[in-house]
Amino acid sequence: MTWDWQFAANSVPLILQGLLVTLQITVLGSLVAYTLGLVFALVRRARIPVVDQLLFLFIEFVRSTPLLVQIFVLYYVFPSAFGIRMSAFVTGVIAIGVHYACYTSEVYRAGIDAVPKGQWEAATALSLPRRRVWTSVILPQAVPRVLPALGNYTISMFKETPLLLAIGVVDLVNAAKAAGNESYRFVEVYTIAGLLFLLLSYPASLLVRRLERRVEPV
C-alpha cells in the first residue's frame, strides 16, 4: 500500500476538528491543573493534621496509577456511585486536570520553597498580613520560576488527550481513526495526526526552553 495524497487531503478537515477538541481539553485541563495544583500546594503547606497526610497519599496515588484507569473511574463509577453524570468531554477535562494537578502541586511547592527565607522574615518585619505576604511577596516570586515546568506539563497534557478516545471523545486521534475507518486506510491519517502533534508541541517545547533560560527554574 502506498501513500494516497487525495485521501490524505480529504481526511484533513475531519482531523482538524479533532485537533480543536484536543486543544480545548488541553487548555481547560491546564486551567484545572494550574489552579488545583496551587490549592494542593497551599493546603499541604498549611500542614493541617490528617488533611495533609490524606492529600499526600491522594497525590502519590494519582501519580502512581494510569490516567486511563482514572478516566474510566470518573466516567463509569462516578455516575452510579455519586450520581454525578458528566459528558465525556467534561470527564476528560477533569480527569486530566486533576491528574496533572498532582504534578503541578509539586512544582508550586518547589517554587515556594525556592523563595529565600529572608523574604518571609522581611515581610514579617514589615507586619504585612499573612494573606498579603502570599499575594504580594511570595507568589509573585514563585510563579515566574514555575512557569517553564507548568508549560511542560501543558505539553504533556496535550499529548495525553488521545487517552480520552477510550470514552468516546472525538479528539485528534479519534478523529483520525474515524477518517481512516471509512476506507480502512490508516497510514495517512495517523501520520497526519502525528505530524500535527509534532507541529504544535515541538515549537511549544522550544518556547518553554527559552523561558527556562530567562527565569531561574526550579
Binding site: M1, E160, V187, Y190, G194, S201
Partner: peptide
C-alpha cells in the same frame, strides 16, 4: 528524541500497529 517526545504515545502505538503493517 524530539520526534518521539513531540508526538503522542497513542499515535505512535496506532501508527506502529495499524499504519506500519500497511506500509
Amino acid at each position: 528524541v524530539e520526534g518521539l517526545r513531540g508526538t503522542s504515545e497513542v499515535v505512535q502505538l496506532f501508527w506502529l500497529y495499524f499504519a506500519l503493517p500497511a506500509l
